[in-house]
């Protein structure tokens, strides 16, 4: 079942065609990697998908509903969770409070002046923290967490909305090699359990070829190859783009 469907997406910045007619889909429970050399259009593609910039042409649909023209907030409400290349969490809150805030937002309770936030959604928050494996750190302030653990907090926050689609921008950037595989296994396991579609960009080719079900290769704004990792790895054009460009 296709969760995300992107058709003929185009976007240019002052004459530079960042995306020229990109089409792909991501199915429920599927992990899809979006790769390509620097400047290939990955970031532009992500920005359009999560509502940070507007597309010039094309269609983006989540379960058949168009996402184009919506704000990041509206897109989140429709069921799109995100993690960032550089982790973005709330440093003045504990790990549990970070997740509680996301849960409160989902329930549209953040305008409440009366209830005590610390007592809200504790069980749900702890269940999410247990899923990503940092329940024992629930009471620690995010500001003092190790980077790998922050990535897990982000994942728990992204999952708080029970997303249909999870967008992960460079999920393993800044992590030690050992931690990378662990985080990707975790994300893959959670996605399969919930039937969440996952689209991620990644620089580490080992992570890509180990964990992705399918790989999309962007070069100069065009999709030059897509398919199973072993097929993409053998593709002549992909090899040329990566080896010829000197950026892998």
């Amino acid at each position: 079942m296709t969760v995300l469907s992107v058709r003929a997406l185009a976007k240019s910045y002052g004459g530079v065609h960042a995306l020229r007619g990109v089409s792909f889909g991501v199915a429920a429970g599927e992990l899809v990697a979006l790769i390509g050399p620097n400047g290939a259009g990955k970031t532009t593609c992500f920005d359009v998908l999560n509502g940070q910039s507007a597309a010039d042409a094309g269609a983006v649909e989540l379960d058949g509903r168009s996402l184009l023209g919506l704000t990041p907030r509206q897109i989140w409400r429709l069921g799109v969770g995100r993690t960032f290349q550089i982790t973005a969490t709330f440093g003045s809150m504990t790990v549990r409070e970070n997740v509680q805030t996301a849960l409160l937002s989902r329930q549209r309770r953040l305008w409440s002046l009366i209830s005590l936030a610390a007592h809200a959604c504790v069980d749900d928050a702890d269940a999410l923290l247990a899923r990503v494996g940092i329940l024992e750190q629930a009471h620690r302030p995010c500001a003092v967490l190790a980077y790998g653990d922050l990535k897990r907090v982000e994942l728990a926050m992204a999952l708080a909305n029970q997303p249909r689609l999870l967008l992960m921008d460079e999920p393993t950037a800044g992590m030690a090699p050992g931690e990378r595989g662990e985080l990707m296994r975790l994300a893959a396991g959670l996605a399969r359990e919930d039937g969440t579609a996952v689209l991620f960009t990644e620089h580490d080719m080992e992570v890509v070829f180990t964990h992705a079900d399918r790989v999309l290769v962007l070069a100069e704004g065009e999709l030059i190859a897509q398919g199973r990792p072993d097929v993409v790895r053998a593709d002549a054009r992909v090899r040329e783009v990566y080896l010829g460009g000197g950026d892998a």
Binding site: P72, F84, A88, T101, R106, E154
Partner: peptide, 12 residues
Amino acid sequence: RDSPLRADAIGI
């Protein structure tokens, strides 16, 4: 205040 980016991404 802590992270406008994250706040936006969780619907705030």
